[in-house]
Amino acid sequence: MEQLPQILINILYTAIIYFIIALSFYILYFSTKLLNIAHAAIITLSSYFFLSFYSAFNSLLPAFILSIASSTLSGLIIYKIVFYKLIKNNTPKWIVLIASLGVYIIFQNAISLIWGDDVKSIRFADVKVGHDFFGAYITDMQVIIILAGINFLILSLLFYRFSKIGKQMKAISSNLELSSIFGINQNRIFLIAFGLGSCVAAISGTLIAFENDLTPTFGFNLLLYGVVAMIIGGVGSLWGIVGGAFLLSIAQNIGAYYLDSKWMDAIAYIILILFLLWKPLGLSGKRLKKVEI
């Protein structure tokens, strides 16, 4: 096992990516309780926006800010046009899920119409080999993503614990009717949740775009990994999501080492299925939705 340090780094890196994606989805899911597939479109969109803005301005920071701002705006617009009315009508969850799937299809195809289906990548002039780190290689961007992930964890822990909006989200999440009696504006909180979730998704999408190649569907695959991490972590807590992300990453990397990296998709879902069979409450033990009779 001389590749052990490299495998450990890979596990850490993929786990952090899954965590960031899962977090962006969780922010949305936590208060609205909607599995919003259209979220994947925001991840993809942000990286393509970045690609265009970067080639237009040729400097990092404005492109970064503009891409995040425009992707967050798209998330809010999606909420306002589609989800706002569906939530107001008190629609069954699966209908909202299918509607979000429809929105995702529209966005994915619009992206491939505008930017093309071919693989794109964001590369700077010089390709760096990466730093030697105890016999493993790690690139600058991977370090930045790992640090960003840790920051996201700390910020979100603080956010849900101390900020007023975070507390209101918690209140809405635990009891919607009671929280509205206490004067919490549900619509406003949902809007903020969509905005924040899209913002985090946009940041993660842009960061990941530096490391991965861009295709119109890459956000969808990433989001599904994030959702798997969220479900196996138990949809209740942030630490559960961290656990879920690491578990998923460890299983995938070990699977890739012993079998082949092409089985990574299957491994993720087999873990999800195993969890549903034997540990339906997830790592954190909070109740996953089932029929309540």
């Binding site: 699966w94 599904l224 959702v227 993720a268 879902y269 299925i273 549903l276 939705k289 089932k290």
Partner: peptide, 16 residues
């Protein structure tokens, strides 16, 4: 599972 989680699980099975 039920409802929206059911859809996610069938999606997973499709991917497998």
């Amino acid at each position: 599972t039920v409802d929206d989680y059911f859809i996610i699980i069938t999606l997973g099975i499709q991917v497998v």
